[in-house]
């Protein structure tokens, strides 16, 4: 079967192109910074999408790996440990290193299943946060690490948020395409099988344990990559970003847009970062509204905005069909 470009895909691509063209022309400085952070968060959230959306495994570990990636980058490029790598190779090295680390941690933690696994990832977040926050030689303690060089791409230094935007949107698109390819490959289907019924998955020749570990590895690598970008973009890394509350925030981000939907994750990340800025005038009520919004969302559309869209589409299709049948009679 050849896949044709659906009108839906054309609309999505056009919207994306518009987004890329318009955003850096309208925004600058602080607001551009917010959008950029949303893009980097989207990369991390794509990792959660692979674990939770495809495989049904609720993990909080994203911030642990994001922090790992950020501190790794900071140590590689600031001469703190006498290492002074150029930024590009360090950036490319980060997901590779943390894929390895995530693989080993995944081998251990994924011996557990369901809620046990989720708890172990919460524990992991607490342990890594304690180290990030206290161990000065590697993580700078509560002061964090500053003076991180910005991305240097073959001599071109990305010093403004607006130039960063192009790099980030490019990377987000690449990650989104990879995630979409995974979804449509054997790995994606195997994860879906595990999500629905682990026993049935086993009888279909799926190595449930190893498949989960691979998903965890991918999620870890993506989170570390996002973290490495984040610390270069902000030129600073501090431990606050990597605590339990932010871990929960990432899960909410993924659920909001639609945890098993590639476009949904992107929209979710943008909303979580951008919406509070737009509603700044509400200031102190913002978080409160946010909390209510999350609950309403879970009550009325647990599959997120993407789920809502699918539902509306299905309803329209259904109605059209009825109409056609009515006309045929």
């Amino acid at each position: 079967m050849k896949r044709k470009f659906s009108p839906e895909a054309i609309v999505l691509v056009s919207l994306l192109v518009l987004f890329i063209i318009i955003t850096p022309r309208v925004l600058s400085g602080y607001s551009m910074n917010v959008v950029n952070i949303a893009l980097m968060f989207a990369i991390v959230a794509y990792g959660i999408s692979v674990m939770l959306g495809m495989g049904g495994q609720l993990t909080f570990a994203a911030v642990s790996f994001m922090g790992g990636g950020a501190y790794f980058m900071a140590n590689m490029c600031t001469d703190r440990l006498g290492i002074n790598m150029p930024t590009l190779p360090a950036l490319l090295l980060t997901p590779v290193v943390f894929a390895g680390i995530a693989f080993v941690i995944g081998l251990l933690l994924l011996k557990l299943s369901g809620t046990y696994f989720t708890f172990s990832t919460i524990a992991l977040v607490q342990v890594t946060y304690a180290f990030y926050n206290n161990y000065k030689p590697l993580f700078g303690g509560a002061d964090g690490i500053s003076g991180i060089p910005t991305l240097n791409l073959f001599g071109y230094k990305f010093t403004s948020y607006n130039t960063w935007f192009y790099v980030l949107i490019f990377l987000v698109i690449i990650v989104a395409v990879i995630v979409e390819l995974i979804r449509d490959s054997q790995l994606g289907r195997s994860l879906a099988a595990i999500r629905d019924n682990e026993t049935a998955a086993l009888t279909m020749g799926i190595n449930v344990y190893m498949t989960k570990v691979i998903a965890f590895t991918i999620a870890g690598a993506l989170a570390a990559f996002g973290g490495a970008l984040w610390c270069m973009h902000g030129r600073f890394v501090g431990s606050d970003m990597f605590n339990y509350l932010n871990a929960a925030q990432f899960i909410i981000m993924a659920m909001l847009g639609g945890v098993n939907n590639t476009v949904g994750i992107f929209v979710g990340a943008l909303l979580v970062k951008v919406l509070p800025e737009i509603l700044r005038s509400l200031q102190s009520y913002m978080q409160l509204i946010w909390g209510f919004f999350i609950i309403l969302l879970m009550v009325f559309m647990p599959t997120g905005l993407a789920g809502l869209y699918e539902q509306i589409k299905a309803n329209i299709k259904h109605k059209l069909q009825k109409k056609r049948e009515g006309a045929g009679q």
Binding site: Q186, R189, A192, A193, D196, N197, M204, N260
Partner: peptide, 25 residues
């Protein structure tokens, strides 16, 4: 029958072919 409830028919059947091919992820 145990099928993936949230997937379409094609993906569900492809799981069978995945098993037959055994090409790895």
């Amino acid at each position: 029958p145990r099928f993936l409830q949230r997937s379409n028919i094609r993906d569900n059947l492809l799981l069978g072919t995945d098993l037959g091919n055994q090409m790895g992820y």
